[in-house]
């Protein structure tokens, strides 16, 4: 057993005739924080959705925590239990309370008793700083609060890896920082994180590596210092110019 969390090699994905991901190679070590960025439609969301099989890849291999992601149903179950995901639109279950949102999966997929599940759920809700909202329904919370609940919900499964799919881009500006604070906290605790985001400040602060994608390819891959100060590729430069111009 190595300390490799995710290993993707020569992976290709097609939507019908459209070549969405082109020969992607990526290796993520345990405890590493990766930020993926790139223009919309560049395949960055598709890439991380392949890691927990929300999308199916056609060629190449994806290995998560030593388990090969293939046609085997049991492997998919194992990987999904170990990989948490936070979505752009939170995707909380509106018919369940905040607490129920957090305890449902541990009870059903990890077979943890209700008491234990609730205890750990409260712990994580405290960690995202909204334990007082536990009995409310998602619809009664603000966007920032909902996203923090979504992070707590993912944490309750005690995952090895957390995927973030543009977690702040559906939020009002004043709510972005409360979510980013939680993410920075997680990063400092050593969680393995792969984040698709346009928050360049966050990338500078916590990322070990920044990956730039365009047209379904990984164009550039570098430590944040080098990535922001001295990008090599023309497309990266162009993208950074646009995103940092104001």
């Amino acid at each position: 057993m190595t300390d490799v969390a995710v290993s993707i090699s020569h992976m290709n994905k097609y939507y019908g005739g459209f070549h969405a991901l082109k020969d992607v190679n990526l290796e993520v070590e345990k405890g590493e924080r990766i930020v993926v960025c790139g223009p919309s439609g560049s395949g960055k969301s598709t890439l991380i959705r392949c890691i927990n099989r929300l999308e199916e890849h056609q060629e190449g291999s994806i290995n998560v925590l030593g388990t090969e992601l293939n046609d085997d149903v049991a492997n998919i179950d194992i990987i999904r239990r170990e990989v948490g995901m936070v979505f752009q639109h939170f995707n909380l279950f509106p018919h369940l309370t905040v607490l129920e949102n957090c305890t449902l999966a541990p009870m059903l997929a990890r077979k943890i008793s209700q008491a234990d599940a609730e205890k750990s759920a409260m712990m994580f809700l405290e960690r995202v700083r909204i334990p007082e909202q536990a009995e409310k329904f998602p619809g009664e919370l603000s966007g920032g609060q909902q996203q923090r609940v979504a992070i707590a919900r993912a944490l309750c499964m005690k995952p090895e890896i957390l995927l973030f799919d543009e977690p702040t881009s559906a939020l009002d500006p004043e709510m972005i920082s409360e979510v980013l604070d939680v993410m920075v906290g997680l990063a400092s605790d050593g969680m393995t994180m792969i984040c698709v985001t346009h928050e360049m400040g966050f990338a500078r602060q916590v990322a070990d590596r920044v990956i730039f994608m365009d047209h379904g390819e990984i164009v550039e891959e570098a430590a944040p210092g080098q990535f922001f100060e001295a990008p090599k590729n023309e497309r990266t430069k162009e993208f950074l110019r646009q995103i940092l111009s104001h």
């Binding site: 046609d71 085997d72 149903v73 049991a74 492997n75 998919i76």
Partner: peptide, 11 residues
Amino acid sequence: STLLNSRRFRN
């Protein structure tokens, strides 16, 4: 067991 677990085979 791998055959039974294969999604394509199951489908």
